[in-house]
């Protein structure tokens, strides 16, 4: 796929990186793939969140990535009726193009899909493209969603939708069937329970059980295991203990390092080419000044000698 695309475009590069990452770490809860003819168009399917009325459902949709991606947010459209979102309508979420002020370039298609799954059981609060069906209707739609994938777009797109649907079915567990008594009990519950499940992207603790948004903010992690710290009375002991631990790890590094890491020749100094030019220029100037001074000195001594001889 990479050969067809303009790799000089940062958006294309980023999308290909995401695709590579999605393929290397697949999830059972969602699958998303770009169309072959347009890498900015993605087709996805998400599994209904567990322990909700959407459980067992397979919901298809499309993602439209802007040309300025990841600096501008994508737009989402669901194609499978779910009772939570309208079909073939761009939906309003804090991660979609309806709220560009909330979008972060560090978010990706993966985080967007995880967030979308987390948003499903929440109260719509009259958001654009949202629906508020009864729980039993949503459950019926969840069961129906497994039967066949939605029909949408070109034959190429349809082929991709079918492939995604088959993959999701192969990974799914059987749909939980509820007894009529349970249905009536659930129907009698108030909307307060739904309000409790409100999801805030900036507060991952509020996510429903089993749903996690990948944390990308943790750049620097200090791991501290409860190990006894044996250090001699002199601080050199600290250094010695550190040396011992790291020599083994550096050997492992040499063995396990990526193919991109090459054996490097030892250099006495790391310098940029510009700096070398400056250095050479400085040396040249110094030599020139010294030569001029010497000339002056020689001339002055010659004249002095002549003057002395004449006298």
């Amino acid at each position: 796929m990479a050969e067809k695309h303009n790799l000089k475009n940062p958006a294309v590069k980023r999308i290909l990186q995401e695709l590579k990452e999605m393929q290397s770490n697949p999830s059972d809860d969602y699958l998303s793939l770009p169309l072959e003819e347009n890498i900015f168009e993605w087709q996805f399917a998400i599994r209904g969140p567990r322990d909700t009325e959407f459980e067992g459902g397979i919901y298809h949709g499309r993602i439209q990535l802007p040309s300025e991606y990841p600096f501008k947010p994508p737009s989402f459209m669901l194609l499978t009726p779910s009772g939570r979102f309208e079909t073939q309508t761009k939906i309003c979420l804090s991660i979609s193009n309806h709220h560009p002020e909330h979008w972060q370039p560090s978010w990706s298609v993966r985080t967007a899909l995880v967030a979308l799954i987390a948003f499903m059981p929440t109260n719509p609060n009259g958001a654009l493209g949202s629906l508020n069906y009864k729980k039993e209707d949503r459950r019926a739609l969840a069961i129906k969603s497994r039967e066949a994938p939605p029909k949408f777009g070109t034959p190429e797109r349809q082929r991709l939708i079918d492939e995604i649907h088959e993959y999701m079915l192969s990974k799914s567990s059987p749909v939980p069937q509820l007894a009529p008594s349970q249905v009536s009990e659930e129907h009698s519950k108030t909307e307060e329970a739904e309000a409790e499940a409100q999801v805030n992207l900036h507060n991952p603790e509020a996510l429903p059980a089993g749903v996690e948004i990948p944390d990308q903010a943790g750049d620097r992690v200090v791991e501290e295991q409860e190990l006894p710290v044996n250090v001699n009375s002199n601080p050199a002991g600290v250094e010695a203990s550190m040396d011992n631990s790291s020599s083994g790890s550096s050997n492992q590094l040499l063995q396990k390092s990526d193919a991109r890491v090459q054996n490097l020749k030892p250099e006495t100094r790391i310098q940029k080419s510009d700096d070398r030019l400056f250095t050479l220029a400085a040396i040249g100037l110094t030599i020139a000044i010294v030569v001029l001074l010497l000339k002056k000195f020689i001339k002055s001594t010659e004249y002095g000698a002549v003057f002395m001889d004449e006298s």
């Binding site: 940062p10 590069k13 980023r14 990186q17 995401e18 990452e21 990841p70 370039p105 560090s106 990706s108 990308q216 750049d219 620097r220 992690v221 200090v222 791991e223 501290e224 295991q225 409860e226 190990l227 710290v229 250090v231 600290v238 203990s241 550190m242 631990s245 790291s246 790890s249």
Partner: peptide, 19 residues
């Protein structure tokens, strides 16, 4: 690493271009 028990990891992947 420090004292065999404390480890600091600095991720060198840009979270914008994912490279």
């Amino acid at each position: 690493e420090l004292f065999d028990s404390v480890k600091i990891d600095i991720d060198l992947t840009c979270s914008i271009c994912l490279d």
